[in-house]
Write a protein that binds this DNA or RNA. Structure first.
Lengths: 232, 232
DNA sequence: TAGATTGTTAATCGATTAACAATC
DNA sequence: TAGATTGTTAATCGATTAACAATC
């Protein structure tokens, strides 16, 4: 639309990262997938890749890849392709992998305990600093190297160590109430597994609702309505 | 595009359900959400609802709701709105909630055990008939009323009781190999939590890949690049 | 009947794909 | 230089929104 390209002004330099290089919602949703494939390429020792090669790997069009990678800064090279390491580090930066985000898990039930042990957080630069629960039989225990604390200690804990996000794995009927409490503790991001949609946008919160049930239903749908080449 | 409306031919009646009333991918992705909100309305004893009312509840436009509900059969009534129970039952039908689908869980680790205890499956008409693992310390145990069997018994089990879908919560490096085995057992749907993209479309399989890490990264991104009204 | 609200068409918007000139 | 491959514009496609006539 306007000038574009890497000619940043001094004002641009001052922004948190380099902000708003018009990354559309559709591109943002795809970034994590690029992150995964680039990781794998690095593990395989691949130094460069073309949009064409990456496209057949990921099952999308080369055109889309070029379009996507271009909207946050042109760092391919004509006739050569993309430098895998550089591309990866730029995407990491964009996704906040180096931002040192701290998380707590609310609810030390099955799902909470499964998540705390998953390597997912560490890979993405998120550190789980504590879990919280109300169940006295769980409080004080340690899971995956993380201590389970009493929900009563939430405020004092967050006061001592600022927390960026909370992972909600508590029963859905307590989700709304606990969310308010978390926001007043200065937590801005909620990763919500309760199954109840939370929309606290007004209050400045950032909520990512995970609906596993929705995903299951889509599988259901597709099993019941197979398309041509899914007919077995 | 062509005649539309509920004037089904005899040929239509023979299809698995009533197929292909041109439901677009975007609508399919939204159906589970309608399912959830309608359930809640029923629980609240609400008998009818207008697109306007539902729109403010769900935070989408009334226009989208009318458009969505219309593409799989007009069952609103002008001047009245939609009958909640009827709408719900139609969506359930479309999503295969009454289809009596049977599932098994592959991998009785943290996530597998968390899922088997979740009410999610039952609510959506999916019955978990068994779990499988290779770990001898888990085999024979029972979790959430479901028995953990030896992976070796997979083939004979599926032979005795046909299974529609498998939930993959096993380590990602074994995902590809096990998937092949599941397909040859006649299982057509895979709900894949391994984090490795599976694309077995050629082989007639229907795969729903769940990438929790991608969801986490989007939260990361939004925390690092807050928009106007997320600035706290 | 009058009021409400759908079904449906047309207009808008955004995202994807195709094509090719720029350039390494 | 010649070949490869990007960056970028234009064309296409699909999804969303607006508007309103049809109708309960």
């Amino acid at each position: 639309m306007d000038q574009k390209k890497n000619n940043r002004t001094t004002a641009d330099e001052m922004l948190p990262l380099e902000d708003n290089p018009n990354v559309s919602p559709a591109v943002i949703r795809r970034l994590p997938r690029y992150f995964r494939y680039l990781r794998q390429l690095i593990r395989q020792g691949k130094a460069r890749i073309s949009s064409g090669e990456l496209s057949s790997l990921m099952g999308v069009t080369a055109s889309q890849i070029r379009q996507d990678l271009n909207c946050f800064g042109g760092f391919g090279q004509q006739g050569y392709g993309y430098n895998v390491n550089y591309l990866y580090s730029r995407i990491c930066e964009l996704l906040g992998v180096e931002a040192g985000l701290r998380a707590i898990i609310i609810g030390a039930g099955d799902l909470g305990r499964a998540l705390v042990r998953a390597p997912m957080f560490e890979k993405r630069g998120v550190e789980i600093v504590s879990m919280f629960d109300v169940d006295p039989t769980l409080i004080g225990r340690e899971v995956g190297g993380v201590r389970i604390r009493d929900m009563k200690e939430l405020e004092s804990f967050c006061n001592d160590l600022p927390v960026d996000m909370a992972v909600l794995t508590l029963p859905k009927d307590r989700a709304a109430e606990v969310s308010e409490r978390l926001l007043s503790c200065g937590i801005r991001g909620l990763w919500n597994f309760t199954g109840k949609d939370l929309s606290l946008g007004d209050e400045g919160a950032i909520v990512e609702n995970v609906h596993l049930g929705d995903s299951l239903m889509i599988l259901n749908y597709r099993l019941c309505h197979p398309t041509e080449n899914e007919q077995k």
